[in-house]
């Protein structure tokens, strides 16, 4: 109950802050559509050369891009602005005020500087996914499992984000880290089965971007084994746990080393 109140208050303050600068809802929609276009162009160029690649048709790969756009929307709305705010807090020493609030600091920094308007990207991404879903004739079961896997993937993304934020306590100037997440995610705009060997291994197990975009798309095609789907969710939970540990450890370091 009181947690809900806190979250609502944080979202409210975020929304009010973004509205100070850019109240342009339509500008954001235009940008989101343009980005979706730019994101899909390379896909069409590739599939112009080869009608199917590693068992993926254009429409199926389009689903991957759709989930990629959704993930990017989450990145823009939640991950990136909050990350930059935390870095700023640490640099200016105002992070102390965060720690003095009687609310979980990880929750606080995850939400305190959200840009809700950027969620428009997620809507556009969902549109792309819907188009692809129609093209591959996805049924309700496929849609449901794809949605579940998407949330597992987003959990994972948030965990990666938490690990990066944790490192903000160790480096001097880490604004660039948000670009690192972005670059990592960028590999996820292609079905992970297009990669080979070591790269594929990394993208599936170490930095499981494949889980964020490819697995939901596979589920949409009805080609994801239930065991793989469950495994993906377990991995997501595992990552969340690891991220939590990284966060608490770096807080401990922050409060023993800062001045």
């Amino acid at each position: 109950m009181s947690l809900g109140v806190s979250i609502a208050a944080l979202m409210r303050a975020s929304l009010l802050t973004t509205m100070r600068y850019r109240a342009s809802f339509f500008g954001e929609v235009a940008m989101a559509v343009a980005w979706a276009f730019w994101t899909t162009v390379p896909l069409f160029v590739v599939f112009d050369q080869a009608p199917t690649l590693a068992g993926w048709t254009t429409e199926e790969a389009l689903a991957v891009v759709g989930f990629f756009i959704i993930a990017q929307g989450v990145l823009e709305a939640l991950v990136d602005p909050n990350l930059r705010a935390v870095v700023e807090h640490v640099r200016q020493g105002t992070f102390d005020f965060v720690l003095l609030k009687p609310i979980d600091a990880q929750l606080y920094v995850s939400l305190h500087r959200t840009e809700p308007l950027k969620l428009v990207h997620c809507v556009v991404g969902a549109g792309v996914v819907a188009y692809a879903a129609k093209a591959v004739d996805a049924g309700p079961v496929e849609l449901l499992s794809a949605t579940l896997l998407m949330f597992a993937g987003l959990t994972l993304l948030h965990s990666l984000w938490t690990v990066v934020v944790s490192s903000a306590f160790f480096f001097v100037k880490v604004d660039n880290l948000s670009w690192l997440i972005r670059a990592g995610l960028d590999a996820g705009r292609w079905p992970v089965s297009l990669y080979r060997g070591f790269v594929r291994f990394v993208l599936t197990f170490v930095l499981p971007i494949g889980l964020v975009t490819t697995y939901p798309a596979l589920a949409l095609r009805g080609e994801l084994k239930p065991s793989t789907g469950l495994g993906a969710m377990v991995i997501a939970v595992l990552f969340a746990g690891v991220a939590r540990i990284a966060w608490t450890q770096s807080l401990r370091r922050y409060s023993s080393a800062s001045s």
């Binding site: 480096f171 001097v172 100037k173 880490v174 660039n176 880290l177 670009w179 690192l180 972005r182 670059a183």
Partner: peptide, 11 residues
């Protein structure tokens, strides 16, 4: 700022 530069290159 070498650590940041490594990140920049990696991005």
């Amino acid at each position: 700022y070498r650590a940041e530069l490594v990140i920049w290159v990696l991005t």
